[in-house]
Write a protein that binds this DNA or RNA. Structure first.
Lengths: 340, 340
DNA sequence: GAGTAAAATGACAGCGTTGTCATTATGGTG
DNA sequence: CACCATAATGACAACGCTGTCATTTTACTC
């Protein structure tokens, strides 16, 4: 059997409560007592029993990750990052796949949080961008951290920002630097802020170069291969087709690449294509895609760490403990699909 | 606050122990007592507190899913299936990504199972096929269920089989039916049984038609896009190149497709290509790939259900409660990449 | 060095459940 | 109908921890 708080206390010659104070970092333990206890913990390879902790304490050590996102790579990267941070802080993770378009989604989430007695929630897009969901969580007093697209935090709740705007501006800038002037844009779902932010960055980059975007070159779609195939056909049929394309993600870009090649349009000679996300996709096309890389696992880790710190702050009743939002700017990765 | 076993007992007019018996399906409760308790449970929307259960009982209600597999779609599908079954049985799931090539993998797993006090483990390839890992789990008395490639169970421990052999035979048969006689095969990692089983099926189908496989047409590789690209170049350079290809998975097939098109070889006219897995990949190539579809989520669900049943059987000390292995045969999906 | 406030530590109940064992109800027998 | 075996139920401790509050130790003051 594994060590319990009692055996650690005996070994260290203190009361169990003192051990409890040590493992909870309560900070009211004398340095040498602390050292003794730490030593006992190490010697006995003691790990707090989560069930007992959950039962006795008023808080739980379980976080939840709720997702609804068709992109398996993204989800898995998020999950791995969250898991890593959870492990190093003694938290557990409950995974909850769901369907954001389900009208009962809010009930479902509230129910889930209650029945699993979660300490906090990690929300990624699109859930992190649904005001109804956030509002319901606020109302129920459920703590959460959001990962979302933007360059400044919308409020003082913990969040991690991904600056899609800046990255999109860089990608478009790269296309402009290559001499392109007629640049097309294919958007993903408008409900995703990432779409609107990337589009904003696209427009801004054009404006930086004194170019007015041609509305014909901007197409709405979804984050799918099919959108890429269809949109590029439409674009290439234009009297004055674009010489470059910025697709809202790699999947669209891959579709566009395929569509272009099917029509005998050479990439990158006749048409440069850039994607976004640095998904495995982007290296498995011919030619490989220029894209922007977001360190998803790292983002997830940071988000989780913010949530945990905020949880602990609340536990210690520390008021005004606002955690500054982290901002990640996806990094431009230039590959052959945009080389001259 | 949510209902406890005590409030249910009071509401139903019985002792808490009787309620405990009901929620644990112990079967020694009179029908009308059971009905009363059930009604109380429903009325109060009672859900057992997992922490208390774990603490009081000798068993835990947490399963673990350990994975090491680069295929995000597969992992996520597995995970979703497991989760679904866990939820409907009141179990929780602990996710543990790991690296099967790590020499300390066994220590890592044993450690993980101990410190998380898991009830059982769900193992998918390649971990489910590593004798060392299985042996260590057996030694530690850790229950597990395996998902593995094969057509009969290697022992009487719970497992779910995926009959890659049969499916590969069907795919190859389909190619033969189209009149192909020179059919190439590109293998994945030999450590994965799925590779050897698929290869076995390939050979058998040829043998069924009285064809001897040409060793030149069989290439070893890994489950990757790159393998596909390289292998097809090698194959097409042969004095007598194949007219059809069966790739061990869709990723290889996609790579081969690309390689072929780059050399100006038309698919399916000059070369038919079939993959395996029915990954999103397979619909996003041009032309879409013929493949075999395995209902991964369903497989995972069945595996989880086997594990849970076996856990409960052991709890009731039911000897000889062997659960018959489920067998899934992936289904042939014919798309344009093999049409005449 | 006595007196006091603050810091450090400890004793003990209680969290919601299950396991053990005792008790009570039930049904079958002669 | 008394008697017994067995089925059904209940009382209560225990699981390993945290919260509350009491007690002890420390540090500082005059």
């Amino acid at each position: 059997m594994s060590a319990t708080i009692k055996s650690v206390a005996e070994y260290a010659g203190v009361s169990i409560k003192t051990v409890s104070r040590v493992i909870n970092n309560e900070g009211t333990v004398k340095p040498d007592t602390l050292a003794k206890v730490q030593q006992a913990i190490d010697a006995l390879d003691y790990r707090p029993n989560k069930a007992a902790r959950d039962l006795a304490g008023r808080d739980n050590y379980v976080l939840g990750y709720v997702y609804d996102n068709p992109n398996a790579y993204y989800i898995l990267a998020m999950q791995n990052g969250i898991l890593k941070e959870c492990r190093s802080n003694g938290y557990e993770l409950l995974i909850h796949p769901c369907d954001a378009t389900n009208p009962d989604i809010i009930d479902e989430l509230v129910n889930m949080v209650n029945s699993a007695r979660l300490a906090g929630l990690i929300l990624s897009p699109p859930l992190s961008e649904m005001p109804d969901v956030l509002h319901a969580m606020d109302e129920k007093g459920i703590q959460y951290v959001r990962v979302l697209s933007g360059d400044k935090a919308p409020d003082d709740k913990p969040c991690v920002l991904v600056d899609d705007y800046q990255a999109a501006r860089q990608i478009t800038g790269h296309l402009l630097d290559q001499g392109h002037r007629r640049i097309a844009f294919i958007a993903g779902e408008k409900q995703h802020h990432s779409t609107t932010e990337r589009q904003r960055g696209f427009y801004q980059a054009l404006a930086d170069h004194g170019i007015k975007a041609d509305p014909e070159l901007v197409i709405d779609g979804t984050y799918s291969f099919g959108t890429g195939v269809q949109s590029i056909q439409q674009l290439l049929a234009l009297p004055e087709p674009p010489t470059a394309l910025f697709a809202c993600n790699d999947e669209i870009a891959a579709g566009a690449l395929f569509g272009a090649r099917m029509q005998g349009v050479d990439v990158p000679e006749a048409l440069a294509i850039a994607g976004f996300e640095n998904s495995p996709f982007s290296t498995q096309t011919f030619p490989p895609l220029t894209t922007a890389s977001q360190p998803t696992a790292q983002i997830a880790q940071r988000a989780t760490s913010s949530l945990i710190r905020s949880l602990q702050a609340r536990k210690r009743k520390a008021e005004n403990h606002t955690i500054p939002a982290d901002i990640f700017v996806p990094e431009l990765i230039v590959r052959e699909s945009t080389s001259r």
